[in-house]
Amino acid sequence: MATKAASSSKINSEDPKTDGKSPTNDTPITEEDLKQKETPINVSDVLRLKKSTKDYLIETDDNVYKIDFIHFRIRDMKTNKVLFEVQREPDDDEAMDEMDSSAGRFVQYRFPPSFLKLKQVGALVGFKVGDREVKSFRMIERHFFRDQLIKSFDFDFGFCPPNSTNSIEHIYDMPTMDSKQIKEMIEHPYETKSDSFYFVDNQLIMHKKATYAFDLD
């Protein structure tokens, strides 16, 4: 198993990694616009979204690299306490996927209110790759509360050999929020949402969604 670690990087319109020019990335785009786009959805496209998506921008069949996530863990980097963890065999969800196209693509998380005051968390993911090499695997993750962007993260998985099992821990620098916003997020469970967009060679191949509640005792 290849193991890597990566810290979050700030995304802005001047960063060449966004693969676009400032005026382009500053121009809003809607979910409907992207669904009708004739060319593949790229990094610059999703950075122009101003709110969380209601549906998925891509079908599960578009994951032609057969990337399959099999392990996920969230921990507090300061205390090393594990806050959430799930692990499965690669074929566990096969039957479910046939019945529900959103299976494996949507998660509801529940955390204690103290989660919103953490400074840094680590999110470890383990995944398998099919029989095609993945030259440039990258994730853009955007977190919203009531359609207000809280923070955008950019992680690079790098090169992944064919038929390999890999793991990488992303280090999230948590956004600083005032007490009023924290109170609102606690009182309105699952109105905090995230979109995770996965790209290979700047082409969207996977889209995962999550909602969050901060009411766990």
Rank of each mutant, 00 (worst) to 15 (best):
F214M: 06
H188R: 13
V107W: 11
F137C: 08
T176I: 13
E59I: 02
P189H: 10
D178T: 11
Y109V: 00
F199N: 02
F157S: 08
K193G: 00
H143A: 09
M206C: 04
S52Y: 08
D100E: 09
Q120R: 14
D92N: 09
Y212E: 03
P23K: 06
S8P: 02
I29P: 01
L216R: 10
K81Y: 00
H71W: 10
K209G: 05
D61M: 10
M185Q: 12
A95T: 14
N80R: 13
Y198T: 00
R138W: 01
K21S: 10
E184T: 08
S164M: 08
E133Y: 01
I140M: 04
L47T: 08
P16I: 06
K4P: 00
T165L: 09
V125M: 11
K10T: 13
V46H: 02
S196L: 03
G104T: 01
L204N: 11
D195P: 04
T30P: 09
D131I: 00
Y109S: 06
D178N: 15
M99C: 07
F111Y: 12
T53G: 04
R88L: 10
Q203A: 07
F155Y: 11
F69R: 10
D92W: 05
T24R: 07
V82I: 15
S196H: 06
F72K: 13
E14L: 12
L124D: 13
K50T: 14
F155P: 03
R105M: 10
T176P: 05
L204H: 11
K17S: 14
D55C: 01
S196P: 02
T30L: 03
E191W: 09
T211N: 14
L118K: 15
E31L: 04
Q108L: 10
M177C: 09
E85N: 09
C160N: 05
V125N: 06
D217S: 14
K54V: 07
R73L: 15
F115E: 13
I41D: 08
E169Q: 11
P90M: 04
L124S: 13
R73N: 12
T60S: 14
Y109M: 05
K4Q: 11
K37W: 00
Y56N: 07
K135A: 03
S152R: 01
K117G: 15
T165I: 10
K78L: 12
Y212N: 01
L216K: 15
I58H: 03
I11C: 15
D178P: 11
S114V: 10
H188A: 13
H188G: 03
P113R: 02
R88T: 15
S13N: 12
P113L: 09
E98L: 14
D91Y: 08
V82A: 09
S101C: 12
K128G: 14
F115R: 08
E31H: 06
N166A: 00
K66L: 01
V125C: 00
D147K: 08
Y109D: 05
I41V: 12
I11Q: 09
N166R: 04
K10N: 07
H170M: 09
V43Y: 05
G20Y: 01
E59S: 15
K119T: 15
A210R: 13
R132H: 03
S194G: 13
